[in-house]
Design a binder for these strands. Structure first.
Lengths: 199, 199
DNA sequence: GTTATCATCATTATTAGTAATGAGGTTTCT
DNA sequence: AGAAACCTCATTACTAATAATGATGATAAC
């Protein structure tokens, strides 16, 4: 007799929710799938079922990461799977035990679940990457990747252009990225700017 | 007796495909749903079924918009629905009769289909790609946003730096974007480059 | 109280990018 | 055959960015 694995899904997209259920039900595992409408429902459901897996969209907890981490600690043996369909901050993803990308095949998704089941539950990363860049450097970076020239940055920050150049030199040293395009990608990946806000 | 509506779906995400089927089959319409693995299969399927609707991810045709538009003209009475789950270029979306966003409810999706069925099939916008970049311009853009200087681009493409400058001038005119960072975002949004490949 | 990081600014020389304009040859569509 | 778009290259004058180096004061850490 197969062991029943409880899964809680918190996902606002009905299409993805139904697609996920279809894939999970076609797998070799026996799942009992519960649907949560929001973070609180997820909490209540997990109190009752002590789910092996909780699948949710990382974007739903991006503004409440502290609460989320507290919740993770309280529910020690639950594994967390993020499901993403747009670019998402790496730091956010690091809070999860595994990530399902929207384009993955059923086989890949099953392999992920199997892999997580076979590994020990690690403590989630506490040190969510110490900010490499200083406050001022981030300010300069933001203005830079928003299309400002050094001179404009200097004017907007009320500092000398020489200072801006020094900051940029330090940013490039710290990140190892010299080009503006590379720094733009860096800023996107680290959520200093949003792609969606720019066009 | 209900009329059977043929739908062809071209979507690389299994999750979304299954989710869509679930929603469509729960609607008040009677659909006959066909799955296409690629553009050519879609073409063959539509020759056979002359589908009322073709649902596909706009990203799949972003690099073959001309072929796509030719196909659209040939299959006059087919309606085109884009399904999107990440930010997508507006010009690309304008080629479709309707857009399904990943977060929409079954009711919203059904309403969209009903609405399209009730409206006359308009001729698709011919002049929607006037602002598209030429092949060479895309080559230049890609090299640029990968951190190459004009001089390096010239060397890699075996053309004069003056030509590179001309291309960049034209790119900026067409896109309305001057800064390298802005063009980087543009390239990301239009999938000329991938954020994930860069870090 | 020394060490380290940060934020600020400078000089000099070199290299890179921009603006404006013109122009010739090729391809594609009508 | 002609129009439109594309790809190519050039000149001139101007502005911006980079590299290398040094320096000062403020704050924070141990």
């Amino acid at each position: 007799m197969k062991k029943i694995i409880h899964i809680i899904i918190l996902e606002t997209s009905y299409i993805i929710y139904e697609g996920l259920i279809k894939i999970l039900n076609n797998s070799s595992f026996t799942f009992n799938i519960h649907f949560a409408n929001n973070f609180n429902e997820m909490y209540q459901l997990n109190l009752r079922y002590n789910a092996e897996f909780i699948i949710l969209n990382p974007l739903l907890i991006q503004n409440i990461t502290k609460d989320f981490q507290t919740f993770q600690k309280e529910s020690g043996n639950t594994r967390w799977i993020g499901i993403i369909y747009t670019h998402t901050d790496q730091q956010l993803l690091s809070l999860f035990d595994g990530i399902i990308y929207i384009n993955e095949t059923p086989n890949e998704i099953n392999a992920l679940i199997q892999k997580i089941l076979n590994t020990e539950n690690p403590l989630h990363n506490q040190n969510s990457q110490n900010e490499m860049l200083s406050e001022r450097e981030v300010e300069v970076l933001k203005l830079l990747v928003n299309g400002n020239a050094n001179k404009e940055i200097a004017e907007k920050l009320n500092i000398s252009i020489n200072t801006v150049i020094t900051h940029r030199k330090n940013i490039s040293q710290k990140t190892g990225i010299k080009s503006v395009s590379g720094l733009t990608i860096y800023a996107v990946v680290n959520s200093y700017i949003s792609v969606d806000n720019m066009q």
